[in-house]
């Protein structure tokens, strides 16, 4: 697969994630209104400079309602333009809009965000820098950064699970699935009845996160297996726990890993 196709795959996957997230924000707009949990009048009191002065006045325009919703509409439009292929001449602008609005959203909402938001930020920042200076070496640099972040993400998560007695005992997944927020009652019941399955699921996640990022560089075919397992893993998390954007944010990093698996995989094998 050539680097242009890999770049396009990353663009498409992250833009789908951005578009879904932006549309969800617009649907849940009451949360960001003066009566909502994320009322900017309250959130702006977190720091003196966001509550008073010239900077605060500008932020009030951008981050209060309807300012933030207008920005999110722009972000949605930019994502749709990238997906349609119409923004190819203006890619730096479209990706820049997606990035800046996402950063403002994270700045505004200091709680209620998750790892998919963080990975989205990293991928968008890497794409933006590439489009500022689109050379083949810059692609290697930004793909190196994105692939590195994915490896750190999976390894950190895997090691944190490996040192956790709750994960090693197999009780973690059943416990998570038994909650209302992230739950899937039928699966939770299944795991509570079949301890071996619960333990296998916990150890499967743990081994995937610890070993996957290490072995995926060996060969592009191994990398494809790693991606297939990762896509299935994130889709299942979305299905059972409602964390739907993780799928798009994390699979958007896979082309970067594949880029290096293609480049160095053969060298490692031979």
């Amino acid at each position: 697969m050539d680097s242009a196709a890999l770049l396009r795959t990353t663009q498409v996957l992250i833009s789908i994630g951005v578009a879904i997230q932006a549309a969800e924000t617009l649907v849940a707009r009451r949360l960001f209104s003066p009566a909502g949990l994320y009322d900017w009048r309250v959130l702006s009191t977190n720091a003196r400079w966001t509550a008073r002065g010239v900077g605060a006045a500008l932020l009030n325009v951008l981050l209060s309602c309807p300012g933030i919703l207008v920005l999110v509409c722009l972000q949605l439009l930019a994502a749709l333009l990238v997906l349609s292929g119409l923004a190819s001449a203006w890619m730096v602008v479209a990706v820049g809009i997606m990035l800046i609005v996402h950063m403002l959203f994270l700045f505004r909402n200091q709680y209620g965000t998750d790892g998919s938001d963080q990975m989205m930020l990293l991928v968008l920042a890497a794409l933006f820098v590439y489009y500022l200076h689109p050379t083949s070496r810059m692609l290697t640099i930004v793909f190196g950064f994105v692939a590195g972040q994915l490896v750190v993400a999976y390894l950190t998560s895997g090691v944190a699970k490996a040192i956790s007695p709750v994960w090693r005992s197999g009780k973690a997944i059943a416990g998570i699935l038994n909650t209302h927020a992230y739950g899937a009652p039928s699966l939770a019941r299944f795991f509570s009845r079949h301890r071996w399955a619960a333990r296998a699921a916990c150890w499967g996640v743990l081994c995937y996160e610890c070993c996957g990022p290490v072995v995926c560089w060996i060969d592009p075919r191994v990398a494809l297996g790693f991606f297939a397992a990762g896509a299935a893993f994130h889709f299942t998390i979305g299905l059972c726990m409602g964390l739907n954007i993780f799928f798009w944010s994390f699979t958007a990093t896979y082309p970067a890993v594949y880029y290096f698996a293609q480049k160095f995989g053969g060298v490692l094998v031979h």
Binding site: G115, Q118, M119, L122, Q149, V152, A153, Y154, T156, S157, A160, K161, I163, S164, V166, W167, A172, I173, G175, I176, N178, T179, A181, Y182
Partner: peptide, 13 residues
């Protein structure tokens, strides 16, 4: 970013 998803203490509440 903080990458310790649901670990070491999973969200069971």
């Amino acid at each position: 970013p903080a990458w310790t998803f649901f670990a070491p203490n999973p969200a069971t509440t």
